[in-house]
């Protein structure tokens, strides 16, 4: 655990060593605001909640979270520092978890910085703050799931751009797997069980449930087990690819 914390700390600071952190946070805040006010119609809906704010999080994360995750392993392999890291007395599992937690904490920071939205809605009306808290948590956990995918894919290549594009595509498939666009492709030839399984993999379905204020164990387990699974694959990917 100690090693996880040390690695997470270094990794977290690394985000702030370059303009990446600043650029990311500014863009994230600008886009969440723009979507909530212009596309989601925050004012015209006339209801004191943050539904129009959270509704666009899956789509923003789809592009922005792979941007945070792409450097995690690809950069280490490109610069050769992976040899340094992997010959320190640290297990691969510690390193994978430490890096993931750092990036996740960074996502968390970006989410926390959207607090003016929460202040605004509380000034304008009396929203159900329980629902808002649940939505924030749901959004954070969903970001973690996107991030675990991005981190794993980052370990498969030395090229950050490739890592970004593939991760964004995989995240897109997970987000959309409940939509007819994706399901149509499988319906008709695949067994009903598979189509149902695919539908149940959709981030949108699970996230919608959470933003309605219902924290269902099944949604938490869904995102949690997804994170564990992708991090497990991440460990394998690092082990297999580190020497190449």
């Amino acid at each position: 655990m100690r090693n996880v914390a040390i690695i997470a700390k270094r990794e977290f600071k690394a985000y702030f060593a370059t303009p990446l952190a600043l650029v990311f946070i500014v863009i994230f805040l600008a886009l969440t605001g723009a979507f909530a006010f212009y596309v989601g119609g925050f004012f015209t809906r006339g209801s004191a909640d943050l539904t129009s704010f959270f509704a666009y999080h899956p789509w923003l994360f789809l592009l922005l979270v792979p941007a945070i995750g792409m450097r995690l392993w690809a950069e280490e392999r490109k610069s050769g520092t992976i040899e340094l890291l992997m010959t320190l007395p640290v297990s691969t599992v510690d390193a994978v978890i430490g890096k993931f937690l750092a990036a996740w904490a960074f996502c968390g920071l970006a989410l926390v910085l959207t607090f003016p939205m929460w202040v605004t809605v509380n000034v304008l009306g009396t929203p159900d703050n329980g629902v808002i808290l649940a939505s924030y948590l749901g959004s954070f956990v969903m970001a973690g799931a996107f991030l675990s995918i991005s981190s794993c894919i980052s370990a498969l290549t030395k090229n950050q751009v490739i890592a970004f594009i593939i991760a964004a595509t995989v995240c897109f498939l997970f987000t959309m797997s409940g939509a007819q666009l994706v399901l149509n492709f499988f319906q008709g030839w695949a067994p009903e069980v598979l189509v149902d399984a695919l539908r149940s993999m959709s981030f949108l379905t699970h996230f919608d449930a959470v933003t309605r204020g219902v924290i269902d164990l099944k949604d938490v387990v869904f995102f949690g087990s997804l994170i564990v699974m992708w991090l497990f694959l991440n460990v394998i990917a690092v082990e297999l690819n580190k020497g190449r």
Binding site: A14, A17, T18, S79, L84, P89
Partner: peptide, 21 residues
């Protein structure tokens, strides 16, 4: 591996370091 690595000081080829630190 972890116990063995504790006893080793290693300079990899090309001396990779985290450039932004």
């Amino acid at each position: 591996p972890v116990a063995a690595k504790r006893r080793i000081g290693y300079l990899p080829e090309g001396a990779p370091c985290y450039g932004d630190m």
